[in-house]
């Protein structure tokens, strides 16, 4: 390498020797507190930003779908049970040939008579 370039490189590498610490502009704390106050959120803003998080949105959607699926499946089972009960009652009535009324000893025709 040429000696002049070598010298320049060496001087450049040493140019940070003895560097002083840089200071921020005056009233840094005042500007910082202003920023902190701007960053402070109300409870509604905090809730809003929490609810609008993609993770929360997706999780909520999943829970809603799960609850829906559960209700639909449960309703289907209940309907089947109701159909079964109705079916059994009909069968019972058919078997007894609608004789429930005739088995009664109560005299419907002569209610007023002793």
């Amino acid at each position: 390498m040429r000696p002049d370039i070598d010298k320049k490189v060496q001087e450049t590498l040493e140019s940070l020797d003895g560097i002083q610490r840089a200071e921020p502009q005056p009233f840094f704390y005042t500007r910082l507190t202003g920023r902190l106050q701007r960053n402070e959120k109300t409870i509604w803003e905090t809730m809003g930003s929490f609810i609008s998080r993609p993770v929360v949105v997706i999780a909520s959607l999943f829970v809603i779908l799960l609850v829906n699926a559960f209700i639909v499946l449960r309703q289907d089972t209940t309907t089947n049970n109701a159909a079964l009960v109705a079916d059994q009652t009909e069968q019972l009535l058919t078997d007894n040939e609608y004789v429930l009324a005739t088995n009664s000893s109560f005299d419907y025709e002569n209610i007023d008579r002793p």
Binding site: S15, I19, Q20, R21
Partner: peptide
């Protein structure tokens, strides 16, 4: 950088 001496 403000902390560097003038000639450097």
């Amino acid at each position: 950088h403000p902390g560097v001496v003038l000639d450097k």
